[in-house]
Simulated scan of single mutants.
Amino acid sequence: MPLLTVELFPGRTPEKKRELIQALTDTYLQVCGGKAQAVTILLKEVDPADWGVGGRSYADIIAENKAQN
């Protein structure tokens, strides 16, 4: 039973999450085959303050980008 885990920032609507789950399932089945009932998708929302790149948190990067615009 495959498990696909996607980590993303919060903010998507339940409808968008359902759409993403369906699209990921469909793509997995097209590439790897199998049955939809066997594919598990796990969406994990991560606060931007808990996600960093280049020594900086995304919360800081987002705030900086907002200040520049």
Rank of each mutant, 00 (worst) to 15 (best):
A38K: 06
A38F: 11
A59I: 00
I21N: 03
R12G: 04
G55D: 09
K66R: 15
Q30P: 06
T27E: 10
T25S: 04
L4D: 01
L42Y: 13
L24R: 05
T5M: 11
I21L: 07
P10T: 02
Q68H: 14
A38D: 15
L24W: 01
N69S: 13
T5Q: 13
L3K: 00
G55N: 09
G33N: 12
M1G: 08
N69T: 08
Q30R: 15
D60L: 04
Q30W: 12
A59N: 00
L3C: 01
A49R: 14
R12V: 02
L42V: 14
A23R: 13
S57D: 07
L29Y: 09
A59G: 03
L43I: 15
I62F: 14
L4P: 02
G55K: 05
T13S: 14
L43W: 09
T13C: 01
P2Y: 06
I21K: 08
T5W: 00
I61M: 11
A63M: 07
V53W: 08
A36T: 09
I41N: 11
D47C: 12
T13M: 04
Q22P: 00
D26L: 10
D50A: 11
V39M: 07
Q22T: 10
G54P: 09
A49V: 02
Y58Q: 09
T5N: 06
P14V: 00
E7W: 05
L29D: 07
I61K: 12
L3E: 01
M1S: 13
D60K: 09
N65P: 06
A36W: 04
L3F: 07
E15Q: 05
Q22S: 11
M1W: 08
A67Y: 01
P14Q: 03
Q68R: 15
L3M: 10
E45Q: 14
T5E: 11
A59F: 01
V46A: 04
D26Y: 03
E15G: 02
K17M: 06
Q30S: 14
G33R: 11
P14C: 01
Y28S: 08
T25R: 07
Q22V: 06
Q22G: 00
G11P: 03
D26C: 03
D60H: 08
G33F: 12
L8K: 02
P2V: 03
G54W: 07
N69Q: 13
I62N: 07
